[in-house]
């Protein structure tokens, strides 16, 4: 089953890279809502009040599509991971913007240089993100909200490590490399984080 999904994604990505409109649409529709959630989970409540998540989603998708040519699908789940990393970067960017409070002229210029067709369909795709959310996510909407709230309350270091392992799917070794810890230490950190998350989740 997973193979099928993966094949599909690969297929769509390939099509999109070639400029296929509907493939692009589909990718956005399937992955858009997920990116939205990932962003929500990454941002704390404070941040969420300051940054519009939908904007961020658009931001992320735009960067992704722009960069699609550079993306190679190797292993299962690569696409989402890739999107997730983009989301992380965009988020950090936005934070800096928030603090700096200046506008990034270059970014705007880049926007304008988009090919119209991609933009049109892209906008349409983005419009569709909320209304045709994949049912798997729709049905769990409430619970996901609860999870998001719980993650909000989590200590930043716990939150970070949970996102890295659960969303990005990084191995403990990989996480360890990023954080400068041993993989065992990471694992223990994850168990503490999960346990804490459960406690909070129960009381949300």
């Amino acid at each position: 089953m997973r193979l099928t999904v993966d094949d599909r994604t690969r297929h769509l990505v390939a099509l999109a890279q070639d400029g296929g409109e509907s493939a692009l649409n589909q990718l956005c529709k399937v992955y858009g809502p997920r990116v939205l959630w990932i962003i929500r989970l990454r941002m704390g409540a404070e941040l969420r009040s300051k940054l519009e998540s939908m904007d961020l989603v658009q931001d992320v998708l735009m960067s992704a599509l722009k960069d699609l040519g550079n993306f190679t699908y190797e292993t299962e789940g690569d696409f989402l991971r890739w999107l997730s990393r983009i989301a992380e970067n965009r988020l950090r960017n936005q934070l800096q913007r928030l603090h700096a409070n200046k506008r990034d002229i270059r970014k705007e210029v880049q926007l304008n240089s988009y090919r119209p067709t991609v933009e049109d369909s892209f906008v349409a795709a983005l419009d569709a993100v909320d209304t045709t959310t994949p049912s798997a996510i729709m049905s769990k909407r409430e619970e996901l909200d609860k999870l998001a709230k719980a993650i909000d309350v989590l200590k930043p270091e716990y939150r970070q490590v949970i996102v890295m392992t659960k969303i990005e799917g990084l191995s403990y070794k990989e996480i360890g490399e990023r954080l400068g810890k041993s993989s065992e230490a990471v694992r223990k950190l994850v168990s503490r984080a999960l346990e804490e998350l459960i406690s909070i989740f129960e009381n949300v």
């Binding site: 999904v5 589909q26 789940g77 994949p134 659960k166």
Partner: peptide, 22 residues
């Protein structure tokens, strides 16, 4: 919680169907 994370991360066939002929 694991299931919730999974649903975010793992796309399944149904999702493609849902969005296919929108």
């Amino acid at each position: 919680i694991d299931t919730l994370f999974d649903s975010l991360v793992q796309v399944d066939e149904g999702d493609f169907e849902d969005t296919a002929t929108g």
